[in-house]
């Protein structure tokens, strides 16, 4: 299967007065049509920055981007603003976390969806409005014929996120990037939106990149998972393996930090310390200062050499960036018993 989205050795850096912020460092992954990739990581791990690079949303005057991002064969890195305008919305589109601030309060929901449609199609307002109503109906907004003329403040949070999804999908993009689309929503509404995204993906056969920090959400919607830490991928593979039997100590730490709704109470085992500043990422493996297993690697290798993202077990589909030998055994003996 040829991937629709292919990122190779992506680096995103922001030069600042205090030094260079190395937000993404050598990220590579590929995503075919019809699959959902969840990108997981804490704030500052580079998950949003890398996805904004896919949309060509970084200001070239203040950002240094190297490497390659190919979407449907088109190279995005270095693409002219004019070509990006044609690309955004038509080939790929994005949904943001906060539907409140990503809709314009002065224009009706319909106007905003129509604008997006007419940017890529030479059609009359009337045709575009019919299309907007069709899309609102498709994302489950009741009474779309009346709702299309309403303003964002007349919509509830869940409805606004539905409208955002309608706007993102109005041009049938093959790639949808959802950046924490349900984080601002209540759980019952979150469940509705997750169902909707899964439904739409089945119908449109698009590739979905789903950025989140909620591993429960990941377990429910993703096919594949990419775990990021300090600007780099530390683990990548099918969701069942990554969340079921992870191989990277950072993923272990995440799993141990989350109190499960079905779980038995007991002390959590949080990762000590806090994520590094991207101005001064630690040498070697960026996670080693917080890793409780670094002493099991000989010669302080973790502090000197960045491990490669490679298959650590017989399974070629799952990649991990760690020097530990036999991580699957360590997971069984040390981690599994203390998971919440």
């Amino acid at each position: 299967m040829t991937p629709y989205l292919e990122i190779t050795d992506l680096q995103v850096e922001f030069p600042t007065q205090d030094g260079t912020v190395r937000a993404v460092q050598g990220l590579s992954y590929a995503l075919p049509l019809g699959r959902t990739l969840a990108i997981v990581g804490e704030s500052g791990s580079g998950k949003s920055v890398s996805s904004m690079a896919v949309m060509g949303l970084h200001d070239p005057r203040s950002t240094r981007i190297t490497g390659s991002i190919k979407v449907g064969g088109k190279e995005i890195v270095g693409m002219s603003e004019r070509n990006l305008m044609a690309f955004r919305g038509a080939d790929a589109s994005m949904i943001f976390q906060d539907p409140q601030s990503s809709l314009h309060p002065y224009f009706t929901i319909g106007d905003q969806i129509m604008e997006s449609y007419r940017a890529h199609h030479r059609v009359s307002r009337k045709t575009a409005k019919a299309r907007a109503i069709e899309m609102l109906d498709r994302v489950g907004i009741p009474n779309p014929g009346r709702r299309v003329d309403q303003y964002p403040h007349e919509f509830s949070g869940g409805m606004r996120q539905r409208a955002m999804i309608a706007m993102a999908l109005v041009n049938d993009p093959k790639l949808l990037i959802a950046d924490e689309p349900t984080t601002a929503l209540d759980v019952t509404v979150q469940a509705q939106i997750l169902d909707l995204i899964a439904d739409l993906q089945r119908d449109f056969g698009s590739a979905v990149v789903f950025i989140t920090h909620d591993l429960g959400v990941v377990a429910e919607i993703a096919d594949d998972v990419l775990v990021m830490y300090a600007g780099n991928a530390v683990e990548h593979g099918p969701v069942k393996q990554i969340l079921g039997t992870p191989l990277h100590p950072y993923t272990w730490g995440l799993l141990e930090s989350i109190p499960a709704v079905s779980g038995t109470p007991g002390p959590l085992h949080p990762i000590p310390g806090s994520p590094p500043s991207l101005l001064a990422v630690p040498n070697g493996c960026a996670f080693h200062p917080r890793c409780e297993f670094r002493d099991r690697v000989a010669d302080g290798l973790c502090g000197e050499k960045l491990p490669d993202l490679v298959a650590r077990t017989a399974d070629p589909d799952r990649l991990s960036r760690c020097h530990l030998t036999g991580p699957d055994r360590i997971f069984e003996t040390d981690i599994l018993p203390r998971l919440p």
Binding site: S156, V187, Q190, D214, G216, A219, L243, A260, V261, S262
Partner: peptide, 28 residues
């Protein structure tokens, strides 16, 4: 019941059988 059943659960990847989801319609 609806609130609890709407919480995404990581257990599904560890072989915990998936539960019946109660889907609420509409808004508060």
């Amino acid at each position: 019941q609806a609130l609890l059943s709407a919480v995404p659960d990581i257990g599904v990847v560890r072989g915990v059988p998936p539960r019946e989801r109660i889907r609420l319609v509409g808004d508060v």
